[in-house]
Amino acid sequence: MNHRRYITRAPAICGGEPIVAGTRVTLRTVLSSLAEGMAPEAIVADFPSLTEASVRAVNCLRCRVCRGRPAVARHRQIPDLA
């Protein structure tokens, strides 16, 4: 999955925290919802600017980071994690 399409960060948006591209929803928010056991459909219902694909991309990135892959970069887009 190409995470660049779904995840970005910019200093002027949400203090530079990683966000779902095209929204002001932080990865922290999506990850917290997933950790509480919410289904992607329920998260999308709570945050209509998200798509199920973007929620899955956040979860896939979490899995990659937990396996020791590179974390989110400090610039606008994350590196290619393929």
Rank of each mutant, 00 (worst) to 15 (best):
T23P: 01
A35I: 03
G16F: 03
G15P: 02
T26E: 03
V65G: 06
P48C: 04
D80W: 13
S49Q: 10
V20R: 01
R76W: 15
L61Q: 09
D80N: 13
E52F: 03
E36T: 09
R62F: 09
E52L: 07
R74I: 10
P79L: 14
R28K: 13
R9W: 03
A82E: 14
H3A: 11
T26H: 05
P11G: 04
V72G: 08
I19E: 04
T51E: 08
M38Q: 10
R4A: 08
R74Q: 14
R56A: 13
T23R: 02
G22P: 03
T8Q: 13
T29R: 10
L31M: 10
V58T: 00
C60A: 15
L61A: 10
R64S: 11
C14H: 08
A45E: 08
R4V: 04
V72W: 10
P79I: 14
R62Y: 09
D46P: 03
P79W: 14
S54Q: 05
P18N: 01
A73V: 08
R74L: 14
T26W: 02
N2V: 07
P11K: 08
L34G: 05
N59E: 12
R76A: 14
R74D: 15
N2W: 07
I43Y: 01
R28Q: 09
T23L: 02
T26K: 06
H75Y: 14
T26L: 02
R5P: 01
R76T: 12
S33G: 09
A35L: 09
P11F: 03
D46H: 08
C63Y: 12
C66R: 15
P18V: 03
A42K: 09
V55G: 06
V72L: 12
V65T: 10
E41W: 07
A21K: 10
L34S: 04
P70A: 07
A10N: 11
P18L: 03
P18R: 07
C14V: 08
V65S: 06
T51Y: 02
A82D: 15
P70W: 07
G16A: 05
S32E: 10
D46G: 05
S54D: 04
I7D: 03
T26D: 06
R56I: 12
A45P: 01
E41C: 09
A57I: 00
T26C: 00
R76F: 11
L50G: 01
Q77P: 08
A73N: 11
P40Q: 01
V58F: 03
T51Q: 06
T23W: 00
H75Q: 15
P40V: 02
S33Y: 11
R74N: 14
V20W: 01
L27W: 04
R5M: 11
T29W: 02
G37V: 04
R76L: 13
A82R: 15
C63P: 04
I7R: 03
A57V: 02
L34M: 07
R28C: 02
L81Y: 12
P48V: 00
A71E: 12
E17W: 05
A53L: 09
A35R: 13
A35M: 07
T51I: 01
V30N: 05
